[in-house]
Nucleic acid binder design. Structure first.
Lengths: 251, 251
DNA sequence: GCTGCGCATTTAACTATGACATACCAAAGT
DNA sequence: ACTTTGGTATGTCATAGTTAAATGCGCAGC
């Protein structure tokens, strides 16, 4: 379970970044794109199940997700795992390791992923020459913090049913903004163990909880994944108001 | 319970910032201090119990904590509260609201606090003219994210005893770096309701858990607060390796 | 075609935690 | 000086959630 080496080959030049086709993402100007093209050292293609970033590693790169699903997680010495967040196209990953010198979480691919690879030691250059991009990076860090705040609220204070409902409403809205929802329905490539590790519950209890959501028609479990069917019901069960749909930065 | 208005009066000019006396904080050069002096619009003095920042508010400021204790929290509509993190001297607060336009958490003072007030609309200036300070801000955002990751791991996967042990070891180490630990002991100004809201537990169960830690000599409960007595035991119980002691940025 | 594995699902027993109630104490308010 | 309030502590019972074990199914490997 080891990540493929980043390749210098480019399926996607920055000028034709696949994220640009989503109205959810703000636009970069020519100079920024030119700089990003140099900042980018290549692309990483990761198979489902591979570990993209390893806790404790001193990574020389940070990455933007171009396609696919992944998750961020931390583990305790005895193997207990907490999934911190899910990773979707447009997300910047590895910033903590770049800015703070050591990754304290890992990232694993849930589906085949393509990631844009940036070189950490060019980050100070970016901050000097492109304050707007630096501001975008700070925006991305603040956004991750804001998501973590709501996730921590959920795990700490919501009931199991509310937690599950919030999780799928949250994933649904993030996926919607990158056009993954088809006909009002989203397929999420996770097992119930993933869901359990995200909600802070056992697999058995998670199964019971997901059955409750299914019986209400909010979602349907498949093998190794589920269809999210009713965003509104999930928001209502969890008492969550949703994410902003305003266009947002990416790099 | 409303915050006192920020005063333009300065107990602490940036040249004589009280945080500078701690070796834990990196040093700013003269130009940076000069800019920060203009970026700073005043100081906020908050009494214990006051709400420094309110969820939903559109704050025009961000703040550095100069002294005192506080906490960041989110609430659900029915009043359930999750304390996300504690706030200590050197912490930057309000960045989410500054960068993302709306605070989605609140901050309350646990003790009298003094905060340095910065003006949000000068942030782009800072990013343009002082990339090193901008980088420091990104560092601070990443650090908060990293702390949230560990807290979420704790709430999601640690037992009640491990959570409490981790919390006090974590608070102890943060306080140690700003010289709040005297004779190997730290007094933390929290009630058991605060601890319960941090650990995702009820007050009753928190009391039982804290009694276990007390019976092992790791801490001693006072009225409205506790003494943290044995950092090493707490780290051992929680299986936590501790924080970096490397000098860190602040603004 | 058979076997083994991963995953989903279920059940039963058990434990951690919550809810509720009560008692006590110190400090603030009257 | 007395009362009220907030906070700590403890006991009991109920429930959410965990653990262990079992079963079934689909798919990959042989």
């Amino acid at each position: 379970m080891k990540p493929k080496t980043a390749s210098a080959a480019r399926q996607y030049p920055c000028e034709k970044c696949p994220l640009q086709r989503f109205p959810h993402f703000q636009v970069h100007d020519k100079e920024e794109i030119s700089f990003l093209s140099e900042f980018k050292t290549g692309e990483l293609v990761a198979d489902a199940g591979t570990t993209v970033l390893v806790e404790g590693a001193n990574s020389a790169h940070l990455f933007t997700v171009l396609s696919g699903w992944g998750f961020r997680y931390k583990t305790l010495d005895d193997g207990r795992r907490q999934i911190l967040n899910y990773v979707l196209p447009g997300d910047l990953i590895g910033l903590q390791g770049s800015v703070m010198k050591e990754m304290q979480h890992s990232i694993e691919a849930l589906s085949p992923m393509i990631l844009c690879v940036f070189q950490r030691d060019k980050l100070p250059n970016l901050f000097r020459s492109f304050p707007n991009l630096a501001y975008d990076i700070t925006w991305l860090a603040s956004r991750e913090e804001q998501m973590l705040d709501e996730i921590l609220l959920s795990i700490g204070r919501r009931t199991a049913l509310e937690r599950a409902a919030y999780l799928f409403a949250f994933i649904f809205q993030r996926a919607k903004s990158v056009d993954m929802v088809k006909n009002g329905k989203l397929t999420v490539p996770v097992t119930q163990q993933h869901v359990a590790d995200t909600l802070g519950l056992s697999v058995v209890h998670t199964n019971k909880t997901l059955r409750k959501l299914a019986s209400r028609g909010a979602l349907r479990w498949l093998d190794r994944g589920c269809d999210v069917l009713d965003e509104q019901m999930l928001m209502e069960i969890s008492g969550w108001q949703g994410l902003s749909t305003a266009p947002r930065p990416y790099i």
